[in-house]
Amino acid sequence: MRFMMIVKATKDSEAGAMPSTELIEAMMRYNEELVNAGVLVAGDGLHPSSNAIRISYPEPGGKPKVIDGPFTEAKEMIAGFTMIEVKSREEAIEWALRMPDPHGFGEGQIELRQVFEAMDLTQDPELIAKEAALRERAERLKN
């Protein structure tokens, strides 16, 4: 099963402040550990929301609304994510606990969310088959 570890944004990360060298090194060591364990699928940091864009559909069937960042609710924003492939929810939590406190200042927060597998989305066999074919075609992530 796959889990996404979401690192929540803080005022500093939103302000574009660079993390300390110690933190960068600790993060690199952590990523190395994930790689060596063969669980890392992808991991990326995000630019602050100042150059983010939001597209919303306030009316079903209506036109989308496009808004440019920055967005204010720093605590709810995302600063980065790491996707891992593990055997259980517990293993995912264990890995998340090994991640260094991503921000310091008492602001660090990581959210762990399980990724949907095709089976979770629908029980329709035709759709499952289609989704399976598409996953193979479009994502080609599983090996």
Partner: peptide, 14 residues
């Protein structure tokens, strides 16, 4: 990818 609802989510704060 789609994520499962936060009901099955976990948060780790420092």
């Amino acid at each position: 990818e789609g994520l499962q609802p936060s009901a099955s989510g976990i948060r780790i704060a420092y």
